[in-house]
Design a protein around this nucleic acid. Structure first.
Lengths: 243, 243
DNA sequence: TAGCTTATTGTCCATCTGACAACAACATAA
DNA sequence: TTATGTTGTTGTCAGATGGACAATAAGCTA
């Protein structure tokens, strides 16, 4: 396989991942969505090879014969971006015949939602650059990665409304407005403050810290924490989280 | 690749699918769920090769280099079972290192929900038998197919409430009570007739046939058909189906 | 024609939702 | 000290939604 046909970002030709021990025609691509300054971004790597100069790609690459799919996703993500310690979930497998030039490559996409500022980025050997890019203003992407991201966004926005995964992006203690800003960023909409408050509070998923915000130049808001126990209990009795 | 290592059911060694034009290490498996007499069943094929004698498998096989994933799923399903004209949706990709003996094979699972009695089964050349099997009383299955079916069931039960896939189980023209009975069977609950009617009608997904039921010993109900175009249009504008 | 079964329409009320007004708390500027 | 601005929090109200169920319509059979 020629070096210029590499799925995801560049393949890392290190000793542990030679062309001999990877599954041909099958790759991984990771969609790591990160919330940064109330803006939804995605982790992308800049290509180095001349064919895709200046284009960006999802961090991904080949799967080894002796590793499980999710393990491959974690390894590739760390190799290319330095990002680790997050939970990747399988998104979908993309395999259009013409999605990749000259060869047939099927890619399995994984995704995660994290707080962007909690990770420090380290561009891997084969990446020219790594960065968070706003999902509303994506750069030019290789192959069908734009299509994959579009699908990922759709799934993410659906999931975020039906599972309380948004709470992971906030500090342990947070205000209702912080929570609302988070949902506004992910869903790319404006929400009504009193109505959002009412909806959330009625779920009985937040427990009050009996503390106030500190150092704000206006009335301090009450702090709450997400009650994982309560959620577990409620969802076992048929409660459906919904924003 | 030795002949006894074949994903899904047996590989059909016909002229159009020789070992040379398929993607190695990548297969398709189809989960075709069928409702039959108020019982949920799944389409399975019996293995012929000596290694898996008597065991059953999901109908599946290798993907060709020049066909899209879903096309491969349709082709394999028809080759092995004679079943065609249904809508397959991607379920998940399974790739545990040890899911397949001796070799690494990743399989992409597709699923569908159909009315079992609408299809006539024709065992392909490489299948000893094809049949609907109750999901509550599955026979011994090859590889990790039991695990795949378990996951498929979980997704199916969720999807049925959030996508109008139940309509596939009815004849083209159906009454509102037939539709209601179907959901009552799947969800195992009783629903209020007027309220169910109102809910469904408000979705604007049914178009009236301007015909009545025939040969019933009581007032005949109006017949409707599912308007796939309308659903497509509505879901593009943010409409969310929910029962 | 009476009686039965199912279809279809209508009504009532509790709850939910979105839009928005109003008031409270607190920092800072005048 | 008072005024002003910003955000937090509570309240109100009209319209939509959903569940319970009454009422009426249509057509078969005895």
């Amino acid at each position: 396989m020629p070096n210029n046909h590499i799925p995801g970002s560049q393949h890392s030709p290190n000793a542990s991942s030679t062309a001999e021990n990877v599954i041909k025609a099958l790759s991984i691509d990771n969609l790591v969505f990160g919330l940064d300054d109330d803006e939804l971004k995605i982790l992308l790597v800049k290509q180095t090879d001349p064919l895709h100069q200046g284009k960006w790609a999802l961090p991904g690459g080949w799967i080894r014969y002796d590793e499980n799919l999710r393990d491959a996703a974690y390894r590739l993500l760390e190799e290319l971006t330095g990002v680790r310690d997050l939970y990747l979930e399988q998104l979908k497998t993309f395999g259009r015949v013409d999605r990749f030039p000259n060869e047939r490559v099927v890619t399995i996409a994984y995704y995660a939602l994290v707080s962007a500022d909690k990770f420090s980025l380290v561009a891997g050997q084969s990446a020219a650059d790594v960065n968070w890019q706003s999902v509303n203003k994506l750069p030019e992407l290789v192959y069908d990665h734009a299509e994959i991201i579009e699908h990922g966004l759709k799934v993410l926005r659906h999931q975020v409304c039906h599972q309380p995964i948004g709470f992971n992006l906030l500090p342990e203690k947070f205000t209702l407005l912080q929570l609302q800003a988070l949902y506004e960023a992910i869903l790319n909409t404006k929400l009504d403050k009193p109505n959002f408050r009412r909806k959330i509070m009625k779920m009985n998923l937040l427990s009050p810290c009996n503390e106030k915000q500190q150092g704000v130049p206006h009335r301090a808001a009450s702090l709450y924490r997400f009650d994982a126990e309560a959620y577990k209990h409620l969802s076992e009795s048929g409660f459906a989280f919904e924003i």
